[in-house]
């Protein structure tokens, strides 16, 4: 039961994050959305590690790796966005089909 609640919450977070990533125009909001989606994926891994008895440690180790990647990627994206803001003053990505 608990596992189901956690899994549903995780999937909800993941979908919410992807929705925000696609529809939020502001780059920082996109990044926050991306982190919400990551949190969803990681929560699912933690939840599914419990299958009765002792929880499986492998997904927990994977989540740690995932968090490290997610933190570094976010930091990198913030630097890129800040640099782009200094160069162009833009805080939003253009229409993807438009040639830069």
């Amino acid at each position: 039961m608990t596992v189901t609640i956690y899994s549903m919450a995780a999937i909800a977070l993941f979908v919410l994050g992807l929705y925000g990533l696609w529809w939020q125009p502001h780059l920082l909001r996109k990044l926050v959305s991306l982190n919400i989606a990551s949190a969803g994926a990681f929560l699912l891994m933690v939840a599914l590690a419990f299958r009765g008895g002792d929880p499986d440690p492998v997904p927990h180790a994977l989540v740690l790796t995932g968090i490290v990647i997610s933190v570094s990627a976010t930091a990198f994206a913030v630097v890129l966005a800040a640099r782009r803001y200094r160069e162009t003053g833009a805080v939003e990505l253009d229409d993807p089909e438009e040639r830069p």
Binding site: L21, K30, L31, L34, F76, A77, L80, T88, A90, P100
Partner: peptide, 9 residues
């Protein structure tokens, strides 16, 4: 920068 950010996201 725009191209790389879009790719990254």
């Amino acid at each position: 920068l725009t191209g790389s950010l879009r790719y990254l996201l």
